[in-house]
Nucleic acid binder design. Structure first.
Lengths: 139, 139
DNA sequence: ATCCTAGCTTGGACCAAGTCCAGGTCAAGA
DNA sequence: TCTTGACCTGGACTTGGTCCAAGCTAGGAT
């Protein structure tokens, strides 16, 4: 993730303590925090950080393409730092846990020309739902 | 949609004026209203109808499987009455309009066993994004 | 036809997620 | 080290949605 900080500097970002902490929180695989979760974790290292800064920074990271937004349940958006490797999401309908997954082939190819209604289609987001091993073990 | 009313009666629903009006609003192809849009349209025919009734009825229709929830943008949920024909959604990233589409094959088949993390995967939701003909015509 | 009552509806209070803003702070170039 | 525009903060505000006590009513029972 330190290369993220480098990329941000290259784009003219001011590297503040807040942005550094948020970038650190977003480091890892299968990370899908809500803005409030990011805020709570960031506040562990930098107690005065405000919710507004978290929302601002996340929004900026999204528009730079460094982080993608994921909405799996119609509640809070989640932020996925694994933006440079194309992938989809697998969600447990019991506990809500999210895994990054890579389906075979390009999902776009499954949409025939006759189903495109003249749209210039550029992206497909796939969300798979099921029960994770832990949730499958109980009702 | 009158068969919807029949199915609801068969399940022991009381057929109130509010529920009838909401069912009428939800009639048609490519209908994807938010709860507030449903409320506004319903209020055109039944001015005293409350937001709470709209939310209650939509929630009941969803849990009966007569209507599905669609969240394309992380804002308000949309309600899709076309629940008895499996389909996915194509969304214009310019104006947000939504079309129902039918991709070739079952999207579930694209997820290899090795990418399932032990989940019992049961459903896949696909959202295609692109620009509609009207939005493609301008910047 | 009328009565009864569980189920439905209502308005308003409340909550969660997210946005906006005026004023104070500070990273980094000069 | 100084300067300054970009950044941060707390708090007010907006939007989308839920909850609840009190009143109403669809439809079965009489």
């Amino acid at each position: 993730m330190s290369d993220l900080l480098q990329r941000l500097r290259d784009r003219g970002w001011r590297l503040t303590a807040q942005r550094r902490v948020i970038a650190e929180v977003l480091d890892g695989e299968h990370v899908h925090y809500t803005a409030d979760e990011v805020h709570a974790r960031a506040a562990g290292r930098l107690p005065e950080i405000s919710r507004a800064s978290v929302y601002n920074t996340l929004g900026e990271l999204v528009s730079l393409g460094e982080v993608t937004e994921v909405t799996t349940d119609g509640r809070a958006k989640r932020y996925d730092p694994n933006a440079h490797r194309p992938h989809q999401h697998l969600v447990c309908s019991g506990c809500g846990i999210i895994r990054d997954v890579r389906p075979a082939g390009d999902p776009l190819d499954a949409l025939p020309e006759g189903e495109r209604f003249g749209f210039a289609v550029s992206e497909a987001q796939v969300t798979y739902y099921g029960r994770c091993p832990a949730c499958a073990a109980r009702p």
